[in-house]
């Protein structure tokens, strides 16, 4: 049951977006988010919307995956829309019922914020859909490297992410084993109210934690035995190389986004 949980949401496709250097992709997503927050005009938003659609098509990702990424945030998006509809005042009164009213300004701003959120989520999820967790980690490590001097532990963060990704499936299958073992001894994980349910998780979490610590100990020993001594003097088997296409796409998209920002 727990084994089927997918880590990240990476979809393996053979596309130009997938082949792009992860550093370029991360930077472009940051740039996109900034442009999204600066832009305010309808034209700018239409252009950004078209840009998302074109990127998705180029990445050969089906739109249902993009829509699926919106699902967990539907509540926040509708909440934003409703709050703005009823509470932001100004302009023509469009609808009135007793003390509740929707005014023009509220409708505009509400829709605007909702679209902003939708764009934000869809475009960032496009990054995780087209970049494997390993590439993402690598890209982040390399991007953070210049900040080492000011104390950003770039290598350590990347190593932590790698180990986390490696051990999530292991710990999940272990949790499942413990769950079954405790059930076999009559533990009840299903009935009762929320507090009782939370309490019943203790016999699952305690052994899981103990074993996680033991694993950490073993792993540290094994890493030291394999000459690990932090990021210093360490090289990589798969170095990231910027190719011509990375520069071309990077520059084109940057120019496009800058134009939108300047226009609005």
């Amino acid at each position: 049951m727990l084994n089927d949980i997918m880590i990240g949401q990476y979809l393996d496709r053979n596309s130009i977006v997938h082949a792009l250097d992860p550093r370029v992709k991360i930077l472009l997503v940051i740039l996109f988010v900034i442009s999204l927050f600066i832009s305010t005009t309808l034209i700018a938003y239409s252009l950004l919307g078209i840009f998302i659609i074109v990127s998705t098509l180029l990445a050969k990702i089906e739109f249902r995956y993009i829509l699926r990424s919106l699902k967990p945030l539907i509540f926040i998006i509708s909440f934003t829309l409703i709050i703005h509809l009823f509470l932001t005042k100004g302009g023509e009164v469009l609808w009135q019922w007793r003390f509740l009213s929707i005014e023009e300004e509220g409708l505009n701003l509400g829709l605007f914020m909702a679209v902003r959120l939708i764009f934000l989520i869809t475009f960032t999820s496009l990054l995780t859909l087209t970049t494997s967790p390993l590439e993402l980690t690598d890209g982040l490590e390399r991007l953070l490297e210049p900040f080492r001097k000011v104390g950003v532990p770039a290598h350590e963060l990347a190593m932590m992410m790698t180990i986390a990704l490696r051990f999530i499936p292991t710990l999940l299958s272990e949790a499942e084993k413990i769950l079954k073992a405790q059930k076999a001894r009559g533990a009840d994980f299903e009935s009762g109210n929320l507090i009782q349910k939370a309490k019943s998780l203790i016999p699952l979490l305690v052994p899981l934690f103990v074993s996680a610590f033991r694993r950490a100990d073993d792993l540290a020993l094994a890493m030291e035995a394999r000459c690990y001594r932090g990021g210093k003097g360490r090289t990589r088997m798969n170095e990231l190389h910027l190719a011509a296409k990375d520069y071309v796409i990077g520059i084109l998209v940057t120019v496009f986004l800058l134009t939108i920002v300047i226009l609005s």
Binding site: P133, L134, T170, R215, D218, M223, R226, R229, T235, M237
Partner: peptide, 25 residues
């Protein structure tokens, strides 16, 4: 065997030791 593999792809894990030695790619 579970507690001594570092990376989430086999070849990346095998590369872990040589990477620590600072060898060229």
């Amino acid at each position: 065997p579970d507690n001594q593999l570092v990376a989430n792809i086999v070849e990346e894990d095998v590369a872990f030791g040589p990477e620590n030695l600072g060898l060229p790619s």
